[in-house]
């Protein structure tokens, strides 16, 4: 149990370190950084490397945005395996991510509940 937390902390932290280096050394905007990480997640998924990482690190791999690319690619790959060429296309539209739905729903609720404030502390 404790080991799971430590794994999640270390792996999740390291993925964030990669992001920080992209921003500070690579001088990329947050949007560029996150896009690169998502693409990386999808590519790792293609090589079958991301699922083992999830098995290893649990939330350390599912919480960073890379897992978003993985879940999309994982879904597309599963469909492609099942249905071949058509699967690549139809698979794309069947694949959903709970992250997107949750963000839309809570974004909408947030807009109902809050207003932006320029507070600083």
């Amino acid at each position: 149990m404790i080991a799971s937390f430590i794994m999640a902390f270390v792996v999740g932290g390291l993925i964030c370190v990669i992001g920080q280096l992209l921003m500070d050394v690579g001088k990329l905007t947050p949007a560029h950084t996150l896009s690169i990480l998502v693409v990386t997640g999808a590519i790792l998924s293609g090589f079958g490397l991301y699922e083992p990482l999830i098995d290893f690190a649990g939330a350390g791999a599912t919480i960073p945005i890379t897992s978003f690319g993985n879940s999309l690619a994982h879904g597309a790959l599963a469909e492609a395996e099942k249905h071949g060429w058509i699967g690549v296309l139809t698979g794309m539209f069947e694949v959903t991510s709970s992250g997107i739905s949750a963000a839309i729903v809570f974004g909408f609720i947030g807009a109902l509940l809050f207003r932006s404030k320029g507070n600083i502390d």
């Binding site: 690319g69 999309l72 690619a73 060429w85």
Partner: peptide
């Protein structure tokens, strides 16, 4: 942009692997 690049890269990954 995260969604766009996530979906497009997933599509390409599946296509290439296929």
């Amino acid at each position: 942009s995260v969604i766009v690049f996530g979906v497009v890269s997933a599509f390409l990954v599946a296509l290439i692997k296929l």
